[in-house]
Design a binder for these strands. Structure first.
Lengths: 143, 143
DNA sequence: CTTTGACCTGTGAGTTGCTCACAGGTTTTA
DNA sequence: TAAAACCTGTGAGCAACTCACAGGTCAAAG
């Protein structure tokens, strides 16, 4: 299979296939006649695997590690479980952060409804933002 | 004020100050003696404004527009309100997406508890991922 | 008065996972 | 046989910083 074919078979952009190849996730052979990349069923399996793993939140380096382990006939599953739990925790944290942001935004919107628009006077740029109280932020620090 | 001073006054990394200056959000004068950047109270106001706006979800180009409008003595408030509502909608969408991801991950974890780890056999890389059903994904498309 | 250390300068690269652009070679279609 | 569609590798662009580098400047200590 050529780039476009495997890309279509996996439902991804051909450039993504090229990118994954560059990154070493895919190891196509070469057609000696024209130097085209030649992907086989194994590459397609790896590509589909990679896409599923991405949808589950794995990073490309993580996916590469998993693939490498499998190539060495070691079961990547324990590693998959471990990485996965870490990712889940991260996702939970991201959700919490975004929800906090949403609350900040909503409270700002509520307050703004009663505030008149001001013209910048050299002291103030936009009261809406400048007078928004970020005391609530103190609780949500990043580590 | 020099870079480090204004950075401390606003509670940001000096490199962020330099970056914002490069990006045109800050317009410091120059000390002709040594070519150092010289920030004044107005720059500090802009910097604090920018940080607050960032925490509220505005992008740097958006913040620059707001600042530019204020410099022209137009009230940026209507624009702020408009951009803000769009951002809020985006945040809601991001939260929904992440929550969906979390559900996918949790359901995968649940299923995995009952699955044995497998050794790669040339057909399978990691059953955990390959046998994970992504039918649920069909509903959550991106536009 | 010189050295040391802390600060300043601008610029370029690294982060993540692609996506797009470019210039040139190949194959297919008309 | 020429145009269209594909292939090749490489480099840049996205967001919002952060860090590294090489060299200039300045305050205080010796």
């Amino acid at each position: 299979m050529k780039v476009k074919e495997i890309a279509q078979a996996a439902g991804v952009n051909p450039d993504t296939v090229r990118f994954y190849t560059r990154e070493g996730l895919l190891n196509p052979a070469r057609n000696p006649d024209n130097n085209y990349q030649q992907y086989d069923a194994d590459d397609l399996r790896r590509l589909r695997f990679a896409r599923k793993a991405r949808q589950l939140g794995f990073s490309l380096p993580e996916i590469r590690s998993i693939l490498d382990q499998a190539d060495d006939h070691h079961s990547p599953c324990p590693m998959v479980r471990e990485v996965f739990e870490k990712r889940l925790a991260e996702v939970e944290r991201e959700i919490a952060e975004l929800q906090q942001l949403r609350e900040r935004m909503k409270s700002a919107l509520g307050i703004w409804r009663e505030m008149p628009d001001g013209t910048p006077d050299g002291h103030t740029i936009c009261r809406l933002i400048e007078h928004w109280d970020d005391a609530a932020l103190a609780s949500g620090g990043k580590e």
